[in-house]
Design a protein around this nucleic acid. Structure first.
Length: 422
RNA sequence: GGAGAGAUGGCAGAGUGGUCUAUUGCGGUAGUCUUGAAAACUAUUGGGUGUAACAGCCCCGGGGGUUCGAAUCCCUCUCUCUCCGCCA
């Protein structure tokens, strides 16, 4: 979330920038500023009352010690009124604080100044593309290929769990494992430290990265233990650094993690979600960085380049989109989406999303570093998929299909130990 | 799941109702000494809020209570450790 000081100092600018995200912040910012002022004056009043109480209590102690019981008794009576006053002010104060907090978490992150306006994904800017888009005749969509070669069974998954929980079999299962290994190995080579985090998290963690409040309906929730199934490894991995104060020389933090991801995807349906296109459970390798504010955009570009490199190795036609204000997420300041072209369906599939959250998550999580003069300063968090498996698998199957079977890309053969699925 | 013990600053560890604005040690930082380093010595060293800067206020696992006054007493939750049970 945005820090109250940011809003206090730049309210007009924030309102203007949030309009790029099609968010009308006019009223909410006005209300926040009012509440902030109210809170601060109440805080001052409480502090002063408390200071007086502290002073008197100390005096009472001294009087008791020196045997002046009567004087102490007299002073004690004086505090009753003050105490009641303090309690009253404190109640009001915490009410104001809660109201303020409630509004603060409603404000989306400010988009980077280069982010253009726009209503929806239609308005995203294609900033790069490469690869062969020629479509041979008679290509099958991946769900038919999965059935043909018996590598992913959607109906069996429905029997066990429900729709959106596929069962991978034989070479299909092996391909999953190969991709995960391939992605992790590449990331480790690029300097990312591998992490295996928990896949269920508590509500503090879900709040830290911005899934809570409001987006709880997108997560699977186990009420008996009050835990959420993670929608992405971003949640546990970024939260590893919650409440930490770094030294500048220990930055950036670079982590990579493979986890299964769970998304309820409430409300989605139709042909767009067919096959592997959208699942309740899927595998993803995620890269996370924590970086100094002045270097975070450099890092974002580095991460984007890294992800493009993976797609190039897999020999998939892809393009890079810079998201417009209307499509960028609540928590992000700048996001690039990578899409691969899946020839059997003849459509682009999003396989990675790389974002800079600036201080938005770090404010919530209190991820800081010690800057000049020992002052603590909030860091920037970034993450990206590198990569999400199902749609990569979909396009690999569709794009590499031949009459003889599906050709495995060169770079994966050491991992799959086979070169064709037939 | 049962029984017991515990949670204090980066770490170790005192403090069980009144200058605690939390003893001490280690570690960190700066300085003295040294060609340099080590050692020794000296000083300094938590987070937040607030202020022009001070001051003030809050934080001894979280929340609540008792009291003029709580790290200290009470309630509650969470977590950790020990023993027993169960177990991949």
């Amino acid at each position: 979330m945005l820090h109250i000081n940011q809003i206090r100092d730049n309210s007009e600018l924030i309102i203007k920038l949030l309009s790029v995200k099609n968010f009308d912040a006019q009223n909410i910012v006005k209300e926040i500023l009012l509440l902030d002022e109210k809170k601060r004056s109440q805080q001052k009043l409480f502090d002063d009352t408390q200071a007086e109480l502290n002073r008197i209590s100390k005096e009472v102690g001294i009087l008791f010690k020196s045997g002046k019981q009567d004087e102490a008794q007299l002073l004690k009576e004086k505090t009753v009124e003050l105490k009641n006053a303090a309690k009253e002010v404190n109640d009001v104060l915490s009410e104001t604080g809660q109201a303020l907090e409630k509004l603060l978490v409603k404000l989306p992150n400010i988009p980077h100044s280069s982010v253009r306006g726009g209503k929806s994904s239609e308005d995203n800017e294609i900033i790069y593309s490469e690869g062969n888009l020629e479509i041979p005749k008679g290509l099958l969509p991946h769900w038919e290929l999965c059935q043909k070669y018996d590598i992913i069974d959607f109906e069996l998954g429905t029997k066990i769990s429900g729709s959106g929980f596929p069962v991978y079999k034989g070479k299909g299962a092996r391909l999953q494992r190969a991709l995960i290994d391939f992605f992790i190995d590449n990331a480790v080579e690029a300097g990312y430290i591998e992490i295996q985090p928990p896949i269920f998290v508590n509500s503090e963690s879900a709040f830290g990265t911005g899934q809570l409040p409001d987006k709880d309906s997108q997560m699977y929730y186990m009420s008996i233990d009050n835990l959420y199934a993670i929608p992405t490894a971003e949640v546990p991995v970024t939260n590893l650094y919650r409440d930490l104060i770094f030294n500048a020389q220990d930055l950036p933090v670079k982590n990579v993690a493979y986890t299964p991801c769970f998304r309820r995807e409430a409300g989605s349906y139709g042909k767009d979600v067919r096959g592997l296109n959208r699942l309740h459970q899927f595998d993803k390798v995620e890269i996370v960085q924590i970086q100094l504010p002045e270097k975070s955009y450099e890092t974002l570009e580095e991460m984007r380049t890294y992800v493009c490199g993976l797609l190039r190795l897999l020999n998939l036609p892809f393009r890079v989109l810079k998201l417009c204000g209307g499509d960028i997420s609540f928590t992000s300041a700048l996001t690039y989406d990578m899409e691969v072209y899946s020839k059997g369906q003849q459509r682009w599939l999003e396989v990675s999303s790389v974002s800079n959250f600036e201080t938005f998550q770090a404010n919530r999580m209190k991820i800081r570093y010690r800057a000049e003069a020992n002052k603590t300063q909030t860091l920037h968090t970034l993450n990206g998929s590198a990569l999400a498996l199902p749609r990569i698998v979909a396009s690999l199957l569709e794009n590499n299909q031949t009459p003889d079977g599906i050709i495995v890309p060169e770079c994966l053969i050491p991992y799959t130990k086979f070169s064709i699925i037939n």
